[in-house]
């Protein structure tokens, strides 16, 4: 998750820019269901900077977790010990997720396509897979029941494919009003954060388009690392660079987390 070595003072890595940009998307009054890995880092960065009242929920049942170190798993002790309350897993999925009480679901992806469908199940054919991935876990219903969904994924042609091999988490299907036709009343994916840019679904076609580029990134980099002819929004903006505070808090968080995981006190 973190880059090897520290960048020069006053600079940042592409991965750090991705975490910071993702964190900025969360609001102080959001109730966020947090995926493990990069989403967890971004959500906790938000909580430790501009959104101190952000409610973080992990699918293991912890509500209002305030971890001082990033958890390795979705059910680390730190999440339960710092939570306001911990409910059972059936309660989490029935009352809290399905009940529509979560404003943002924050997911990662192995593959993502132009209509923001996500695959974390299998590369290749399901019955004879090239690579068997872990599977959906909570993501299929996080994608359908949260009011909106943010995705964080490093930008590569392996991840950004024209069509996913398996729809684990439904984004916009084949585009336009596909969600509505399935009876899904939630917004669905509204933001994809990568190490190069931000993408958002086009208001009508629902195809992902680049709406902001991170500092120093060229259009060509995004084009060559996207598996379909990606469109750029007309009012393309530039992501503000990470502030010293954002970078400091993120680096502290990753450093603390690394020490804890290695078994140090």
């Amino acid at each position: 998750m973190s880059d090897m070595g520290q960048p020069e003072p006053g600079t940042h890595t592409a991965s750090e820019m991705m975490m910071v940009a993702a964190a900025r998307a969360l609001k102080d009054d959001d109730v966020c269901l947090v995926g493990i890995g990069a989403p967890s880092a971004a959500c906790n960065l938000a909580r430790l900077t501009h959104a101190p009242h952000l409610t973080l929920i992990y699918e293991s049942g912890t509500i209002g977790s305030k971890p001082q170190v990033l958890p390795l798993s979705i059910g680390d002790p730190e999440l339960c010990e710092t939570a306001l309350t911990t409910v059972s897993v059936p309660e989490m999925f029935a009352y809290w997720l399905q009940g529509g009480r979560i404003t943002v679901g924050f997911l990662a992806a192995a593959q993502i396509d132009r209509f923001c469908n996500i695959n974390t199940t299998v590369i290749g054919d399901y019955a004879a897979p090239k690579t068997r991935l872990p599977g959906g876990g909570g993501a299929p219903e996080i994608a359908s029941c949260c009011q909106q969904v943010f995705v964080i994924v490093a930008h590569s042609p392996r991840a950004f494919v024209p069509t996913v091999d398996f729809v684990t988490s439904f984004g916009f299907g084949t585009g336009a009003d596909h969600r509505r036709r399935l009876g899904l009343l939630t917004t669905g994916p509204s933001l994809v954060v990568t190490d190069l840019c931000l993408l958002r679904p086009h208001p009508h076609t629902k195809e992902l388009q680049v709406t902001a580029m991170h500092p120093g990134v060229m259009r060509e980099e995004i084009t060559t690392r996207t598996g379909w002819p990606v469109q750029f929004a007309e009012n393309l903006s530039q992501t503000p660079s990470p502030t010293d505070e954002e970078l400091g808090v993120l680096r502290d968080l990753l450093r603390r987390s690394g020490l804890t995981r290695a078994g140090a006190p």
């Binding site: 999925f93 029935a94 399905q98 469908n117 199940t121 399901y126 019955a127 959906g136 299929p140 219903e141 359908s144 029941c145 398996f166 729809v167 684990t168 988490s169 439904f170 299907g173 596909h178 969600r179 399935l182 009876g183 899904l184």
Partner: peptide, 13 residues
């Protein structure tokens, strides 16, 4: 019964 699996490929497999 749940509000789930809509649009995913899981029911296919």
């Amino acid at each position: 019964i749940l509000r789930g699996y809509a649009g995913t490929d899981l029911p296919r497999v």
